[in-house]
Amino acid sequence: MKKVVFAAIVSAVAMFGSVDMAFANRPTQIVVQERVSSRGPESFQVFCAINPRECQPGGDAKIALDDDVMRLLTRVNSRVNRAIRPRLDSPLAQVWRVNPSVGDCKSYVVSKRHELIRAGLSPSALRIAYVKTRDGQSHAVLVVKTHNGDLTLDNLTGEIRLFRQTGYRLVGMSGSDPRRWG
């Protein structure tokens, strides 16, 4: 029952766009850090229940990194970063959306994952990570597992970097099955 009520609230916020504009000055990070269980944050679990095709695993857990893949990652990272106007979700409801016109870091992450899967990358190599930035802010990024290291696609920068070079502290990350977190 609790999950049904939560899903209804999240759906209503997504449908009617009632986002608190007072938080627009910090548009790229998470206002409220959710607890990350073995199934991910509750808001992500709701996203997967509503959008099960977006949460499917499959393919290799790591991909081979070559020039074509790097160009694809750069193109998708840049396109999604430009396409979504940054705006935080309400602290009362954290919402994950694929390709919205406005959204916070969570929507950037699932949009990039969606586009990369559509372009042929293995879903199991595309991981969602909850992190803390250097200044302690909660944030979400997409981590691409490659044989050459874990690359980070981030809406705070256009540069794709190895995760260990971001300065972020990992809070939780999805596994090869995005519905399983560690």
Rank of each mutant, 00 (worst) to 15 (best):
residue 21 M to E: 13
residue 97 R to N: 01
residue 73 L to A: 08
residue 19 V to N: 14
residue 64 A to E: 12
residue 115 E to M: 08
residue 118 R to I: 08
residue 24 A to W: 04
residue 114 H to A: 06
residue 125 A to R: 13
residue 170 L to T: 06
residue 43 S to Q: 12
residue 95 V to I: 14
residue 156 L to F: 05
residue 10 V to I: 08
residue 76 V to F: 03
residue 153 L to T: 05
residue 175 G to D: 13
residue 95 V to A: 07
residue 99 N to A: 05
residue 51 N to Q: 05
residue 174 S to N: 08
residue 177 D to I: 09
residue 43 S to I: 05
residue 109 V to N: 01
residue 32 V to R: 13
residue 24 A to M: 13
residue 60 D to S: 15
residue 120 G to L: 01
residue 165 Q to F: 14
residue 2 K to V: 13
residue 141 V to P: 06
residue 30 I to P: 08
residue 20 D to F: 07
residue 138 S to F: 05
residue 42 E to Y: 10
residue 149 G to H: 12
residue 64 A to I: 12
residue 157 T to N: 10
residue 137 Q to A: 12
residue 64 A to W: 03
residue 52 P to A: 08
residue 10 V to T: 06
residue 112 K to T: 00
residue 74 T to E: 15
residue 140 A to G: 04
residue 137 Q to E: 09
residue 142 L to Q: 02
residue 81 N to P: 09
residue 25 N to W: 09
residue 146 T to V: 03
residue 34 E to L: 15
residue 170 L to K: 04
residue 92 L to E: 12
residue 59 G to Q: 05
residue 13 V to E: 07
residue 149 G to V: 10
residue 144 V to G: 03
residue 159 E to R: 07
residue 19 V to I: 08
residue 16 F to T: 02
residue 27 P to A: 10
residue 179 R to D: 00
residue 179 R to S: 00
residue 144 V to S: 06
residue 111 S to K: 01
residue 39 R to M: 12
residue 158 G to M: 05
residue 153 L to D: 04
residue 98 V to E: 03
residue 176 S to P: 08
residue 158 G to E: 10
residue 50 I to C: 07
residue 124 S to T: 13
residue 71 R to D: 14
residue 13 V to F: 00
residue 29 Q to R: 02
residue 54 E to N: 10
residue 171 V to L: 09
residue 23 F to I: 10
residue 112 K to P: 00
residue 107 S to R: 02
residue 72 L to F: 14
residue 131 V to F: 01
residue 144 V to L: 01
residue 12 A to R: 02
residue 62 K to S: 11
residue 146 T to W: 03
residue 65 L to F: 03
residue 44 F to P: 02
residue 107 S to W: 01
residue 25 N to M: 11
residue 125 A to D: 10
residue 148 N to R: 05
residue 29 Q to M: 03
residue 84 I to H: 00
residue 151 L to V: 13
residue 137 Q to K: 05
residue 37 S to N: 11
residue 8 A to D: 00
residue 34 E to A: 15
residue 107 S to N: 06
residue 16 F to E: 06
residue 157 T to L: 04
residue 24 A to Y: 06
residue 109 V to T: 02
residue 91 P to S: 07
residue 115 E to Q: 07
residue 115 E to N: 05
residue 160 I to W: 12
residue 33 Q to E: 13
residue 38 S to G: 15
residue 53 R to F: 02
residue 142 L to W: 08
residue 47 F to Y: 06
residue 49 A to V: 14
residue 96 W to C: 15
residue 136 G to E: 12
residue 12 A to W: 01
residue 117 I to Q: 10
residue 124 S to M: 13
residue 119 A to M: 07
residue 77 N to V: 15
residue 165 Q to I: 11
residue 125 A to Y: 07
residue 71 R to F: 06
residue 171 V to W: 05
residue 53 R to P: 02
residue 60 D to G: 14
residue 86 P to E: 06
residue 38 S to I: 15
